[in-house]
């Protein structure tokens, strides 16, 4: 069965919230592993895993170094070099936190890498206020790949006019300005034209809208979304009601 984009969003969001609320190491590991497994099923693993690693590896290392070496609250000292003390409490804190964050990050990335953006935008547009959010999201995702091509073109044109990019901060800042100005200028100018074009095409109309792209939304999935949202809210409520349970 094909998932409606909002259903997968609700699933990813609820998973992230529940994992954070549970703060339970085995659950975190299971959710993380499940997200990785599903990414292979969905065929997005080759794009998602490098992106996830780029986010999680520095974060994980940073936390391990920070809490593994410096955790003044820790009592059980495993090793000590000058001011640095490796404590089992610190290590445990770091490992648990990394597992919990990885689970939430992987669940959310599974959603963003597997969702069809046009479907998501169509689903958002048929729901009032979010139409403008859908525009911002889709337009940004269209512009990101285009911008690197454009920066490259600008740089080539400037090098052809004798621009040498030398080392040193001052030169870098000057080079930044020289390249950023045509980039920002052309983006701002294009945005001006695009605004006029969008308005000419009724984008600011306040009346009802229709959608050319059909995104099927069976009633069953609406039910699932409601259940997922309630589960997330319940998890938050339970955690706030019993702040130290399971910790």
């Amino acid at each position: 069965m094909r998932l409606h984009p909002l259903t997968s969003l609700a699933a990813a969001g609820s998973t992230a919230v529940i994992t954070t609320a549970a703060a339970c190491f085995p659950l975190s590991v299971a959710v993380g592993a499940g997200a990785v497994g599903l990414s292979f099923v969905a065929g997005v693993a080759h794009r998602m895993l490098p992106a996830a690693a780029a986010v999680l590896v520095p974060l994980g290392l940073s936390l391990l170094v920070l809490h593994g070496l410096f955790f003044p609250e820790g009592g059980t000292v495993l090793a000590q070099w000058g001011p640095a003390r490796v404590t089992s409490e610190g290590l445990q804190f770091a490992v648990e936190r990394v597992a919990q964050l990885s689970a939430a990050v992987l669940a959310l990335m599974l959603f963003s890498f597997s969702v069809s953006v046009p479907d998501l935008v169509a689903a958002l547009s048929s729901r009032g206020v979010t139409g403008r959010f859908g525009f911002v999201l889709a337009s940004t995702l269209t512009l990101v790949p285009a911008i690197s091509v454009r920066v490259q073109r600008i740089r080539q044109a400037q090098e052809s006019r004798g621009l040498l990019i030398r080392r040193g901060w001052a030169h870098r800042v000057i080079a930044f300005r020289l390249q950023a100005v045509p980039l920002v200028l052309s983006l701002v100018d294009e945005a001006g034209t695009r605004a006029q074009a969008l308005e000419a095409r009724g984008f600011s109309s306040r009346g009802p809208r229709t959608s050319y792209r059909e995104v099927p939304d069976p009633p069953f999935q609406r039910g699932v979304r409601l259940v997922l949202l309630l589960a997330a809210v319940a998890a938050i409520a339970a955690r706030l009601g019993f702040p130290t349970a399971g910790a």
Binding site: V129, L143, V188, A191
Partner: peptide
């Protein structure tokens, strides 16, 4: 804020987001 922004500002937001993100 979003519904009240004029379209000319709205189309700049993706540009800003691209600059931020990149």
């Amino acid at each position: 804020v979003l519904p009240t922004l004029p379209v000319s500002t709205l189309v700049l937001i993706p540009v800003a987001l691209v600059l931020n993100i990149v």
